[in-house]
């Protein structure tokens, strides 16, 4: 059943998406003013479910790509999104276009909304990842070897790069990264375009609704409330951040944060995203589970970029989307597949 995304949903969507970012994904604040500004002018957005798609619909997943710090300074513009859209309607005439977020975790949750509001296009209640991961080869269609041709990359001056690549995700990743640097380290991308009929091989369904529900739980947060659990946010413990170790390694923010509680020490290891959580060196959560810290006072989710010494936090986890729980998919995102520096002897629960 289709619903309306309104201005007042932007805050809960942003909060929920930050939580689903598992510590990474970029701050939705980068996109929220621009999104609000367009929605104030052009109105609400129709959110449709996977079941409402027609076989011939053209699904266009959209993502911001680049350094979040750059986008905070060189603000995103409508032009970057519109450049891609104008080309797509030429390439695919007479198709109903349905936009969607490529990655629900973090700032990309808002990526399709500006175009959707401006042109009255529907947005699909789904994404390609169900959370945030740092690489293109971890989109669901990439793991399932789906077609990604053409892909579009545009910058905020209206430059457009059209990519026709064979199924080589590492080449795509490399070209996209290098081009993004040449575009000033901030760009917009449309990738893994597909038809309504192929939806099962591409999307994690329901992720926008899920972000909205999580966001609402955080909006009504109070330190002693049990609402978090009802929303599927499991509190593993609470304490104070007493150590932050971070390094820049191959362009990623890598390290760990320790949280001291009354009876235990938590360590959360990250490479952009939190990927492993231990309690007294015993694993209590691991990728693809979503691991996050929230500010104990206000319930604000805390990404790995803004960890603050001395802050009182709750350590929380959310179950991974069904897709990631299947063993054949899970193995690709095991924490050992990432470049974490775990020096402690840790044990499984």
């Amino acid at each position: 059943m289709s619903t309306q995304l309104c201005l007042h949903h932007i805050e809960s969507l942003s909060l929920g998406a930050t939580l689903l970012g598992s510590g990474g994904g970029g701050n939705p604040a980068i996109m929220s003013n621009l999104t609000r500004y367009y929605m104030e002018t052009y109105g609400n957005i129709q959110l449709i479910s996977v079941g409402e798609l027609e076989t011939n619909d053209l699904l266009v997943p959209i993502a911001n790509i680049g350094a979040p710090l750059v986008a905070l300074e060189k603000l995103p513009t409508f032009l970057a999104f519109d450049t891609i859209y104008q080309k797509i309607i030429v390439h695919y005439p007479n198709r109903r276009i349905v936009l969607m977020s490529a990655e629900i975790g973090g700032c990309n949750s808002l990526a399709p909304l500006i175009l959707a509001s401006r042109y009255g296009l529907p947005v699909l209640d789904a994404d390609l990842m169900g959370r945030a991961f740092p690489k293109i080869n971890l989109f669901k269609p990439a793991l399932l070897n789906q077609k990604n041709d053409p892909a579009y990359l545009s910058d905020y001056k209206g430059n457009l790069l059209l990519l026709h690549l064979k199924q080589d995700m590492s080449l795509l990743e490399k070209i996209v990264r290098d081009s993004t640097v040449n575009f000033g380290s901030s760009a917009v991308m449309a990738l893994f375009l597909f038809s309504g009929g192929q939806v099962d091989d591409y999307v994690i369904p329901g992720s926008v609704t899920s972000a909205l529900q999580l966001g609402n739980a955080l909006l009504s947060y109070s330190p002693d409330s049990h609402e978090l659990d009802k929303a599927g946010i499991h509190v593993l413990g609470e304490g104070r951040i007493n150590n932050i170790i971070n390094n820049v390694k191959n362009g990623f923010l890598t390290g760990y944060v320790s949280i001291t509680c009354a009876d235990a020490v938590f360590k959360l290891y990250f490479q952009n995203e939190f990927l492993l959580a231990t309690k007294n060196n015993i694993i209590v959560a691991e990728s693809p589970e979503i691991i996050m810290l929230i500010d104990d006072k206000h319930g604000t989710p805390i990404t790995t970029e803004v960890l603050k010494f001395g802050l009182k936090v709750k350590v929380v986890k959310l179950s991974a989307p069904d897709f990631w729980q299947k063993p054949e998919n899970k193995k690709h995102v095991h924490y050992k597949k990432f470049d974490l520096e775990v020096h402690d002897e840790i044990a499984a629960l």
Binding site: L69, R177, V181, V248, K249, F252, L253, E305
Partner: peptide, 14 residues
């Protein structure tokens, strides 16, 4: 505080 700029060459860091 060290803040890396992802996607940037030479480990550019603020």
């Amino acid at each position: 505080t060290l803040l890396p700029l992802y996607y940037m060459p030479n480990q550019m860091t603020r």
